[in-house]
Amino acid sequence: MTAPQLVLLSGSLSQDSRTNRIARWCAGQCAARGATTSVFCGADLDFPFYRPDGAERTERETAFLDALADSDGVILVSPAYHGTVSGLLKNALDYVNELARDTRPYLDGRVIGCVSVALSEQGAGSTLTTLRTIGHALRGWPTPLGVALAGARASLDSEGGPADPVVHAQMATMLGQVLGMAKVSARRRERSARPVGATA
């Protein structure tokens, strides 16, 4: 069976930030369960402000859009900046407008896992809500469970995963939901790519 393809986006420019570390940890967890993962952290998403004027896209921008176009699922990880998602991540997601005329426009049909990282519960909650709202607007399907890492519960272990056992369990559940729905998408891709008349 075709392995599900997941794209993970982290909205922090700080190389060793908790946001980047948790995104890489999520990618490792998903890869260990059979998924193919592409991770875009910080500088990977440092694009010019999005302008829908048909400008020629750079190699980095094209690689980003190609990964999303081919994906079965997306995991969004954002720090809370003044109660909402980082400008870096929001701008990168604005580029998804370039997929408007794709076979699966925008993020249509993709499962979307959402994770917020903040100092306070309030910032984590509002950022998580915004991530889910953006996911819906891009025609994706946010998982039933989103995860907010706030305050002491945002601490990470040596592997980059949540140190708090409750948050760790929440992350495992959310990733399981992403993988389960992404596998369905991967099977659909496999069937659609199969020549007419071919059997499994």
Rank of each mutant, 00 (worst) to 15 (best):
G28K: 09
Q29H: 15
C30H: 06
R33P: 03
A35C: 13
T36C: 04
T37Y: 01
V39G: 12
C41L: 12
C41H: 06
D44A: 11
D44L: 01
D44N: 06
D46H: 08
D46A: 11
F47K: 13
F47H: 14
Y50G: 05
R51M: 10
P52R: 12
P52F: 10
D53L: 08
A55K: 13
A55C: 07
R57K: 15
T58Y: 07
E59Y: 08
L65Q: 10
L68G: 03
D70S: 15
S71K: 06
G73R: 04
V74A: 11
V74G: 07
L76M: 12
S78Q: 12
A80S: 15
A80C: 05
G87Q: 09
L89R: 01
Y95D: 10
A100R: 14
A100E: 14
Y106M: 14
L107S: 04
L107A: 02
R110I: 10
C114V: 07
S116T: 13
S116R: 08
S116M: 12
A118R: 05
A118F: 01
A118S: 12
E121G: 03
Q122T: 14
G123Y: 07
G123P: 09
A124I: 00
G125V: 00
T127P: 09
T127L: 11
T129D: 08
I134P: 05
I134Y: 04
G135N: 09
H136K: 11
A137L: 07
A137I: 03
L138K: 03
R139Q: 11
T143S: 09
L145A: 01
V147I: 10
V147W: 03
V147H: 03
A152E: 14
R153F: 00
R153C: 02
A154H: 02
S155F: 01
L156Q: 07
S158L: 10
S158N: 10
E159S: 08
G160Y: 04
